[in-house]
Each structure stands twice: as structure tokens, then as C-alpha cells.
């Protein structure tokens, strides 16, 4: 089948999609968007998290055909071409939250969503929001640091925008 949808703000089209394929497979293998990772393929690890119509989902659990005419935003779509990395991406690098980095794309999307909803989350809020994203390298401490850092930076840049 053919699937047409919007990926990272651009219309895309995938041909010869087998009905059993996931959104994750289509993104990675047919559309040249391998940023979303496949680490469990059953919705346990969160490595494949993408936005679907603005809500984070495990793309391994979404059938490719389900995204017809819908909006998908992946880790590749977080950075703004003009302004460089999203504050969440920069914070993950600066805080040492990236080791092997395989969990990073999913965590970035999930964190991005958290800070959109709750700009100043408590530690418990962060742990709850990210509890569906497994990381095996960091022990999560640097990830906590990264989310706090991104939150602080986003809030300070928002308040400086307001004061201007």
C-alpha cells in the first residue's frame, strides 16, 4: 500500500508498504528517518517515541497505515534549522545524559512533550513522565539533570522574552 502523511513538517509518501509494517519500520527503512530506535518492538522501552498529531506514542505500536494524512514529528524534527538544537537536545549533551545514546531520541521527544505541558516539573513529575523510557547506561541521574537544565533554560529564555 501507499502511505502519505506529514513527517517533520514535510509531506512524505511511502510505497509498497506491507500491511504488517509499523510506523517505526516505515520511518526507519522507507523514509530515511532512522533516528527513532527499535529496542524492544513492544512498547516497553520508549526508544521509538515520536509525536503523532502532537501526542507522544511508541511508533513500534502504531501500524504504518494508521498515520495516513496525519502529522508525525520525530527526533530529527526537534532541531530548528535556523536556531540549531532544541534546548532539550542541548541540555542532554551538556548534562552528560548521553552515553550510548540509543535511548536518547525517545527520551528527547518525551522530555520535549513534558516541558511543553509542564515547564517546571518536580523531580517526581519528571520520573513519572519518563518512566516509559528505558536507559541502560546512565542510571538516569544525568537525565534528571538534563531535564532540570532544559526546564531552567527554557523558563529563563521565556521570561527574558516576556521582559523584552
Amino acid at each position: 500500500m501507499r502511505v502519505t502523511f506529514n513527517a517533520n513538517g514535510r509531506p512524505v509518501e511511502a510505497d509498497d508498504v506491507w500491511e504488517g509494517e509499523s510506523l517505526l519500520f516505515m520511518l526507519r527503512e522507507r523514509l530515511g528517518l532512522p533516528g527513532s530506535k527499535n529496542a524492544c518492538e513492544q512498547g516497553e522501552c520508549g526508544s521509538c517515541t515520536v509525536y503523532l498529531d502532537g501526542s507522544p506514542v511508541c511508533s513500534c505500536l502504531v501500524a504504518a497505515g494508521q498515520v495516513q494524512d496525519r502529522e508525525v514529528r520525530t527526533v530529527e524534527g526537534l532541531a530548528d534549522d535556523e536556531n540549531g538544537l532544541d534546548p532539550v537536545q542541548q541540555a542532554f549533551i551538556d548534562a552528560g545524559a548521553v552515553q550510548c545514546g540509543f535511548c536518547t531520541p525517545g527520551l528527547l521527544v518525551q522530555t520535549h512533550d513534558l516541558l511543553e505541558r509542564e515547564p517546571q516539573p518536580s523531580d517526581s513529575d519528571i520520573r513519572e513522565a519518563l518512566s516509559g523510557n528505558l536507559c541502560r547506561c546512565t542510571g538516569y541521574e544525568k537525565i534528571m539533570d538534563a531535564v532540570r537544565l532544559a526546564s531552567a533554560r527554557k523558563c529563563s529564555s521565556n521570561s527574558s522574552e516576556v521582559s523584552q
Binding site: 532512522p34 527513532s36 530506535k37 527499535n38 527526533v75 530529527e76 542532554f92 549533551i93
Partner: peptide, 23 residues
């Protein structure tokens, strides 16, 4: 010192090529 990882930017942009990403 604690300089940043040289592969950090690629990894947060989703552009770092893991073995499962090869084509």
C-alpha cells in the same frame, strides 16, 4: 576537564548511525 562528547550532537539529532541504522 569535562568537554562534551564529540558524538553528542549527532546522537541528539538522531543522525548517529548505529549498526541497526545501516543501509
Amino acid at each position: 576537564g569535562s568537554p562534551l562528547r564529540p558524538d553528542g550532537t549527532l546522537k541528539v539529532r538522531g543522525e548517529f548511525a548505529y549498526s541497526s541504522d545501516l543501509w
